[in-house]
Each structure stands twice: as C-alpha cells, then as structure tokens.
C-alpha cells in the first residue's frame, strides 16, 4: 500500500459464509460492549411506558441506538409522527454517507445481497469494514456477519434491560460511554496515510465541532464528513 497515492478500493466483491463468520468473530469484543447500551435502552423504554415486547421490537427493526433514544423523548400520545420521522432521519442521516463510502465495493454485489448487507450497517461494523477494505479484503460477508452479531447483541441486551429495568443501575458509568469513541479513534488512526490526510481531517473536525453547537441534533456529523470529503477530493482528485 503506498503512503498517500491512489485510494485502494476493491474492484470486486464476494459474500461468503467464511466472511460472515470471520466478520462476527472480529466484531465480538465490540458487540460485548454494546450490551450495556442496549440494557440502558431497554430500561429507558420501560420507564417511558413501552412494554418489553415493544422495546425489543424497536431494537430489532430499527437497530440504531441514538435514534431509538431520541424517539423515546418524542414517545407520547398523540404520536408526533412527522417529528419522529424527521428526528430519526436526522440522527441516522450519516448512514447515507457510510453507505456511499462503501459503494465502490458493494455495487459489485447482486442487488439482494447488497441490501442485505446494508440492512445491518452500523458505525462499528462500518469502521471495521473500511479497515478490512484497506488491507484488500473483498468479502462483504465481513460486514454482514459483524452487523448480524451487533444486531443480536443489541436485541438481547434490550430484552435484558426491559425485563430487569433500572435495577442494574447505569452501567454506562464504568466508562462504556467512551468505548465507542475510543474504537472510532482507533479506526481513524488506522487509516492514516501521511500528512496530506491532515487537512481534510482538520476540516472535518472543525466543521463538526462548530456544527455541534449551531446545527440541529445529528447534522454536525453529516456536515463535518461532507466538508472533509470535499476537501480531500479537491486536493487529490
């Protein structure tokens, strides 16, 4: 791999059982640490008046923690459907960018497999997938397997939290809240290709920081990512 030349993108994509198993195995340590967040969501959902079954149903069908917590804030009768849809879209809009970044790879897959893989796309397994791409992997099973394991962990943890409620206390106090940002930091550092990367990264960081205080909740990530991407394209394109 050269230091800061042409990006390395897979020219082909496969989807195998071997990849699915490998992806699940690789994400397992992260999936374990997702459990406290799932438990916290389950407990919070019960406090909001959802049944345990509904909390688990939401985790199974939505599978996007931040937006599920945001939805609990809006959970009332009459249901503010439009606000709910807009909030969920805003919090999850970054998925569009995550997916786009994987497009040069996933577009090589047949349509059904492509969308199956994307249906379990989340931040951690996406970060893992981008690193796998860098080392030349072509098996999209890595994304599907890691996503499925995260999904199962999220559903199980929601169920545990919904049944046990707040009896467990706030598990996130043990530093679990810094877990994700630490993992993402590792993903960023792992992608470092040399000094030319610095400017787009700084632009992304600056725009995201400013955006966090001036933009509606969730949009600073989208703004920062687009700014960094455009800066990179202008400098290297």
């Amino acid at each position: 791999m050269n230091a800061h030349g042409a990006p390395r993108m897979a020219r082909t994509a496969t989807l195998t059982w071997r990849g699915i198993v490998a992806g699940a195995r690789e994400i397992a340590p992260v999936a374990i640490f997702v459990i406290p967040f799932g438990i916290a969501f389950g407990a919070a959902a019960i406090e909001k008046g959802l049944s345990a079954a509904l909390a688990v149903l939401m985790s199974a069908f939505v599978f996007a923690g931040a937006s599920q917590f945001a939805a609990l804030d809006l959970w009332s009768s009459p249901m503010p459907y439009l606000m709910l849809a807009l909030t969920v879209f805003a919090v999850n809009a970054r998925h569009i960018l995550l997916g786009a970044a994987l497009a040069p790879w996933l577009l090589h897959l047949p349509v059904a497999k492509r969308y199956a893989v994307l249906s379990v796309l989340s931040d951690p397994n996406w970060a893992q997938a981008t690193r796998a791409l860098q080392r030349g992997e072509t098996d999209a099973g890595l994304v599907l397997g890691s996503g499925l394991l995260m999904w199962v962990a999220w559903i199980l943890a929601t169920g545990i939290g919904a049944v046990l409620g707040s009896n467990l206390g706030d598990l996130t106090r043990f530093g679990f809240d810094v877990l994700m940002i630490s993992f993402f930091t590792a993903a960023v550092v792992g992608q470092w290709r040399g000094l030319p990367d610095l400017v787009p990264w700084l632009v992304a960081a600056a725009v995201a920081l400013v955006g966090a205080s001036v933009l509606p909740f969730g949009w600073h990530v989208v703004a920062g990512a687009l700014a960094g991407g455009i800066t990179g394209a202008l400098r290297h394109g």
């Binding site: 990006p7 993108m9 970054r94 960018l97 995550l98 786009a100 970044a101 497009a103 040069p104 970060a127 981008t130 993402f184 993903a187 960023v188 992608q191 990367d197 787009p200 990264w201 632009v203 992304a204 960081a205 725009v207 995201a208 955006g211 600073h220 990530v221 989208v222 703004a223 920062g224 990512a225 687009l226 700014a227 960094g228 991407g229 800066t231 990179g232 394209a233 290297h236």
Partner: peptide
C-alpha cells in the same frame, strides 16, 4: 468517498 469515510469518523 475515501476522505468521506475517514471524515465521518472524525466528525
């Protein structure tokens, strides 16, 4: 897209 990928995480 490559810079977008890292920028999402930075952001």
């Amino acid at each position: 897209l490559r810079h977008l990928a890292v920028s999402v995480i930075v952001a």
